[in-house]
Design a binder for these strands. Structure first.
Length: 288
DNA sequence: ACTCAGGTATTAC
DNA sequence: GTAATACCTGAG
């Protein structure tokens, strides 16, 4: 772990409020000075922004430049995605104008799997609290500027917790799911290394669905937020709501099938539907 | 007291 | 395959 700093100039399509509040991450917190501090696999990172300059500083286990580029998907030019999506219709254009600074993060696979298992039928403050408590219980502590931070536990670290330990941390009925999934990964029934290397999005989904607590929506979130699978399209209540309102027009949105939504997304957004989903989700949640 | 929140697993047609 | 239902928890 080494303290490092990096300043990038002329960073396009990068708004911290958009990135950290579009539903993809749970461990970034806004500070009083407007910066964000996040705990990621590699350590603790603070991000602050002044006009087009973005400053990264933190205590990390690898080179801050490569970490920042990978984590914030900086090798991708989001203007290219925006140009493509803007052509689709005025709805898409409006949501891109609203969430113009969104970027899809490239988060740690293991942490993302467990985080989204926890997200099932849950709300964001509770999800964040649960993840924080789990990390504090068995994750590695890092001290930075006099503050203690706890990394998300590794597979081995998390496997130390029993089902009742997990229940005591407030996971609720998700306790068994977290335990079972941890066991499956620990015993290599599902291999994280293999998942990282797989090509086909469908194959990855099939593999992820073997994990307890991972259904279609959670699998899609994992693929989009940690494996950069832009062709996955997580369908939650907000996406169902916005897709029905804008494109499907069913009187009762709860009756709109996932299949209809997915087909609509395929048709309209193609292989970058995951990015479209993020703009729509962020816009819908703030405006519906 | 009661509803709701980034769904999934289980059970029953 | 598709529909109905239970499920921890805590905030509003």
């Amino acid at each position: 772990m080494k303290e490092q700093k990096l300043i990038l100039e002329n960073v396009d399509c990068f708004e911290m409020d958009h990135i950290f509040d579009c539903g993809q991450c749970f461990r970034w917190n806004k500070q009083e000075d407007g910066s964000y501090v996040g705990i990621i696999k590699n350590g603790v990172l603070r991000v602050s922004k002044l006009k087009n300059k973005v400053a990264f500083e933190g205590i990390l286990d690898e080179d801050i430049h490569s970490i920042a580029y990978k984590y914030f998907d900086l090798e991708n030019d989001y203007n290219v995605f925006k140009r493509q999506l803007n052509c689709i219709d005025s709805n898409m254009k409006k949501s891109i104008e609203f969430g113009y600074g969104i970027r899809i993060l490239n988060q740690d696979l293991w942490e993302t799997i467990i985080s989204f298992i926890i997200s099932a039928n849950n709300n964001i403050p509770r999800i964040k609290g649960i993840i924080e408590r789990i990390s504090k219980k068995v994750g590695k502590m890092i001290e930075w500027n006099g503050v203690e931070y706890y990394l998300f536990p590794t597979v081995q670290e998390l496997s130390k917790l029993s089902v009742s330990d997990l229940r005591a941390l407030g996971t609720g009925f998700r306790d068994k799911r977290i335990f079972n999934t941890t066991q499956m990964v620990l015993n290599n029934v599902v291999s994280l290394e293999k998942l990282e290397k797989m090509n086909s999005t469908e194959d990855i989904r099939e593999e992820l669905l073997k994990l307890d607590g991972v259904g279609e929506k959670v699998a899609d979130c994992i693929m989009l937020f940690s494996l950069k699978r832009f062709d996955s399209f997580p369908i939650d209540v907000w996406v169902r709501r916005v897709m029905n309102t804008l494109y499907i027009h069913n009187e009762d949105e709860t009756r709109v099938s996932k299949k209809d939504i997915k087909e609509t997304a395929d048709r309209l957004f193609g292989n970058i539907q995951g990015i479209a989903q993020q703009y729509l989700f962020y816009w819908a949640r703030s405006n519906f």
